[in-house]
């Protein structure tokens, strides 16, 4: 399974004023694996992924996505590489001035020169994947939190990205809906053979989905291993994660 790294992060430093959020952070994401990133609030997880997709500049280090260094990219190259990364935001981040259909069409219209019919087909397919075909003409505000999350997932997938980043996919959802989302993520993983980084607090989620885990502490990757390895660890700091 460990064949090729799609994301390589080396010695990443990022600070806001005097506060160092990331110091010497390293990460490798290999093709086809589900990597779970766990860490306390404020440990720099969100900052890390923002740096990863170029939403934020970093101070030192290098980030390579699909073998290309993103810090040296021009805007249009960055936009191009971003189409290979799907991003599921914590709060779904659906465009609330647009219908579900327009939300899903949005990335398609910008990056794929498809016919209207093809676009329509892709939208339908994406909605089928998350099982919400009937919501196509609704506004995001009319949907429940779980449905919004699923639509957001459909949107993240619509360009068939090679990498998907999930930012706390299950927070704010009830356990049953959370489980549904996790199952959906696993199905997609199988169907499209994507590599994913999953940021979560949810131990259940981590156990179900992870191939490998990284624990983030004080801006560094504190520990790395499979769920079972880490859960069995005697280190009190690691144990704190699994409570």
């Amino acid at each position: 399974m460990e064949n090729k790294a799609v994301i390589e992060i080396k010695e990443l430093y990022k600070s806001f004023g005097a506060v160092e959020v990331l110091k010497d952070f390293n990460l490798n994401l290999f093709e086809g694996e589900n990597l779970v990133l766990m860490g306390k609030s404020g440990s720099g997880k969100s900052v890390m992924i923002k740096c990863l997709v170029g939403l934020m500049d970093f101070d030192r280090g290098s980030i390579k996505v699909l073998g290309k260094d993103i810090s040296k990219m021009k805007q249009n190259e960055l936009d191009e590489i971003r189409t290979d990364i799907g991003f599921l935001f914590q709060g779904s981040a659906l465009y609330d001035s647009m219908t579900v259909r327009e939300n899903l069409e949005f990335p398609l219209r910008r990056h794929r020169k498809n016919s209207e019919r093809k676009t329509e087909e892709l939208v339908k397919e994406a909605l089928e994947n998350v099982g919400l075909q009937q919501t196509i003409d609704l506004m995001p505000a009319e949907l429940s939190g779980g449905m919004q999350r699923r639509i957001a997932l459909a949107r993240a997938l619509i360009l068939k990205p090679k990498i998907i980043i999930y930012d706390e996919p299950t927070t704010g959802l009830d356990p049953i809906t959370a489980k549904e989302i996790i199952l959906l993520m696993m199905n997609i993983q199988k169907k499209y053979a994507t590599s994913s980084i999953i940021i979560t607090h949810d131990v259940d989620c981590a156990r179900v989905i992870s191939n490998r885990m990284i624990l983030l502490l004080d801006g560094k990757n504190y520990a790395e291993g499979t769920f079972n390895e880490l859960a069995a660890s005697g280190d009190p700091k690691i144990k704190a994660f699994f409570k």
Binding site: G91, A93, Y95, D96
Partner: peptide, 11 residues
């Protein structure tokens, strides 16, 4: 609600 980020990430 991170919609602007989402837009940027979607290229």
């Amino acid at each position: 609600t991170e919609q602007i980020d989402a837009m940027e990430v979607s290229g």
